[in-house]
Design a protein around this nucleic acid. Sequence first.
DNA 1: GTCTATACTGGGATAGAC
DNA 2: GTCTATCCCAGTATAGAC
Lengths: 202, 202
Amino acid sequence: MVTRKERAALTRAALLDAARRVFAERGYLGTKITDITAAAGRSTGTFYEHFADKDELLTALMADLENDADIGIEHLEGEHDLTDRAHLRAHIAVFVTVYRKHLPVIVARLQSTMAADPSTGSAWRTLYDETGSFRRHLEYLSEKGHRLPGDPALLAAAMGAMMSMLGYSLFTAGDHGPAYGDDAIVDALTDLLLNGLAGAGQ
Amino acid sequence: MVTRKERAALTRAALLDAARRVFAERGYLGTKITDITAAAGRSTGTFYEHFADKDELLTALMADLENDADIGIEHLEGEHDLTDRAHLRAHIAVFVTVYRKHLPVIVARLQSTMAADPSTGSAWRTLYDETGSFRRHLEYLSEKGHRLPGDPALLAAAMGAMMSMLGYSLFTAGDHGPAYGDDAIVDALTDLLLNGLAGAGQ
DNA sequence: GTCTATACTGGGATAGAC
DNA sequence: GTCTATCCCAGTATAGAC
């Protein structure tokens, strides 16, 4: 016995899943509502029974992702030291793992953010919000007396910007780009941020 | 005496200039052809006499920018050392200067790139192309025996990604974001990349 | 709740007069 | 070359039957 409510939940899930698949192919901006419903085997009108618009669907997808990301960095919080290689590497590894797993959603999200009116400053807002973990760690270091190369919020944003944009470029490149393994990427970013260019030769 | 040709050139210039102004306000994606023509004091049809579409106009604007950028890094080419603080800083400074000066065009360009179909890998292509200078310097270091934290192309892309995305976020934030001076930004990025987090305390 | 059919809108692009 | 007027399409969103 399948209730009305259960069928609705099923349809909703089908739409969300279809959206991920279609976003992976065509991205967020290139995807029409009808693309999603077609991929889900549902009709156009049904979409609006579950979401007000494409943006609301994206928000729903983001919820899953944020949950995963929170779980990933949960045990990394606390008074750890970001200048410790293993700890910095773990942070970056979480980022890469989540990026890989939720690629369609992250791609969609970044496209959506970049498509927004620049003068609202939404890009900064998003970047700031998404780099809270880095920022807190850097602030902690700063308070402890460690002399950082700049303001914690600025550095955290710079690190986040690097990872977001590089991840987007690299992971959407597919056959059109280079084939680095995840470990190579994580190691390179870790050592670049930890020791920089000058320190790496030693 | 103003010839037909001169008037046409004037109109073209007016359209380009108007586009910069409107892009600064609403961005590339949020700007309609009619916004540009209205700002230029011309009529809709006239636009198509000079450009096939919005994208072609953007390409024309990019030409100016690339010229400026080339001039900026011209004297930085050659067998210099990117692990030398002054040299790395000069590179980053050029980037910030060009970003500031051509902000509307860079914003437009990044929006346009991000709006493209992700599966074509155009983001990687663009990033790769725009980081040629970094890449060549790193390859030179690598050949000289300096042990880098990763593949030159990957590191160059990472640095470019950081600067592009951070620049976009920071410079479009306006009142909605923090107010770092250009020097603070350049110094922070320089030291972050040169010494990293661990080396900065020394 | 889901379908089909259709109305509506924004915006790109063109035709033809001047 | 530039203008005005208009066409046209893609894509969103709704109305009403089932």
